[in-house]
């Protein structure tokens, strides 16, 4: 076959699949979001944004992302650096660290629920140690801080590995000679990290952060398991519109708002971590 046509033929199945199962539903959702039955309207958006729970769920989502992503980034960088320094057993450690990736987010939420709930492991331990007389209901409206902490912990536990695997691969690609040159020219281990590893890791950092931040705005099952309705987030509100209130127009508008936020943050990350013009990394 003609060598100029062949590549397009080869990507055709994937393109067709994405158009059918992604682009088409997306267009449907967009249509739904911008209409209430009679023509183009922004009513759905006005409705969801004007609802009293919208600012809270937006704030909760952003707060959670702001608390979780930086911690995960730091942890993933630390873990990736450590794994990369290992001579032996590197793969084993990497597999163990990525186990949480293989668990569904709802299951992860339930694991942490088993720790924090009234008859959970944390209460058994605290009463066993004599710290509390009777079990405390940590995940109640009386302890919003604990609810937030539990969700953040579960998220960190569950999804750090996704950044880790990307960063491990990225660090592995940096030639050793750069570190040796930096060492000879007087860079301390910390300077080698900030002056060599971080800048040369920019493409991987971009990917890891974009992926993780998008996931953070889609947080749902973990929040549902641990916070229920105590901690509304954008995704749980979308779910409520669609399945509790049966208002698919409002749900579609919410979905588009989440998409817009994700695109916005993706652009910010790409811009902030861009490689200077002319530099090849």
């Amino acid at each position: 076959m003609n060598a100029r046509v062949l590549p397009y033929v080869l990507i055709l199945p994937v393109t067709a699949f994405l158009c059918l199962f992604f682009l088409y539903p997306f267009v449907l959702v967009a249509k739904q979001a911008f209409s209430t039955g009679d023509g183009f309207t922004l009513d759905n958006f006005r409705q969801v944004v004007g609802y009293w729970k919208f600012p809270i769920s937006l704030q909760n989502t952003l707060l959670l992302a702001a608390a979780v992503v930086p911690v995960q980034l730091a942890l993933a960088l630390l873990m990736a650096t450590m794994v990369n320094k290992m001579q032996r057993g590197r793969d084993l450690v990497l597999y163990v660290w990525t186990i949480p990736l293989g668990i569904s987010d709802l299951a992860a939420g339930i694991i942490w629920l088993a720790i924090f709930e009234q008859s959970g492991f944390l209460n058994s331990m605290l009463s066993g140690l004599g710290v509390v007389d009777r079990p405390v209901n940590f995940l109640s409206y009386q302890h919003p801080g604990v609810v937030f902490l539990a969700i953040a912990l579960a998220e960190i536990w569950r999804a750090t590995a996704i950044m880790l695997v990307i960063l491990v691969a990225g660090i592995g690609l940096i030639p050793k000679e750069y570190y040796e040159a930096a060492e000879v020219f007087g860079a301390s281990p910390w300077k080698r990290f900030t002056r060599i590893t971080l800048p040369l890791l920019r493409p991987s950092l971009q990917t890891a952060l974009v992926l993780r931040v998008i996931l953070a705005f889609e947080v749902f099952a973990v929040v549902l398991a641990l916070g229920g309705t105590l901690f509304p987030v954008l995704m749980s509100e979308t779910y409520a519109y669609q399945f509790d209130l049966l208002d698919s127009g409002a749900a579609a508008a919410m979905a588009l708002i989440i998409l817009a936020i994700s695109i916005g943050f993706t652009l910010i990350i790409l811009r902030a971590l861009r490689v200077p013009k002319g530099a090849t990394i």
Partner: peptide, 9 residues
Amino acid sequence: FQNYAVFPH
């Protein structure tokens, strides 16, 4: 260095 190790960034 043999491969120069000129920092690309």
